[in-house]
Amino acid sequence: MIRLNAITRTFHMGDQVVHALNDINLVITSGEYVSIMGPSGSGKSTLLNIIGLLDRPDSGRYELDGRLVTDLPEIEQARIRREKIGFVFQSFHLVPRLTAAENIELPLILSGVPQEQRQIRVDEALQAFELKQRAQHRPAELSGGQRQRVAIARATIMRPSVILADEPTGNLDHQIGAEVMTLLENLHHSGTTLIIVTHDRELGARAHRQIAMRDGKILTDQSDDTR
């Protein structure tokens, strides 16, 4: 359950003040599949970063699973990111010198999971995302689709309750992009909240709830009744 209450976020560009988020009120219940759309500069990525606790709002309240997280200290926020939130990026953000398996293992290392358990969980993830053959390859030796699969495996290895995807197919061709979307939607089917930021209307339309943004405000918020 994500509850945003009067969230604002402003940036200063020289002497100009940009309202990236302007009084946002939003409730996303657990297990929802939401797409956030809008042109660049509409504040959709900032919204995602605030939900993911990478950025702090200038004012407003943010409750995650009933807990006020806006003013938590940095260490606590990091712990929540680790345990409840999984990020998927447009440019994958894999560590180039680590193998696919080691990239997937990173969140487990950060959480202090013992070596033997890490091994088991990474193996499971490799299996689930059909990366077994590529486990010992570095990102440079992987295709775009494989890289995003590694990134999704990494985002889900901690079994988070929320997956935040920022243009997850932006660097992939259409067919591979569709495959990646299927993977993400499968996560949603198993109960994870899925929030996707995109400016691709077709992609956004796949979500059960579509939020359109412009100039830091929510323009429309539509839900499919077929859900």
Binding site: I75, R79, R82, F87, V95, L106, L110, M158
Partner: peptide, 16 residues
């Protein structure tokens, strides 16, 4: 830099 950002996104603290 990007790697540090990623580590933070997946839950590394500043002290990590």
């Amino acid at each position: 830099t990007a790697e540090i950002g990623l580590l933070k996104a997946i839950g590394a603290t500043s002290s990590d």
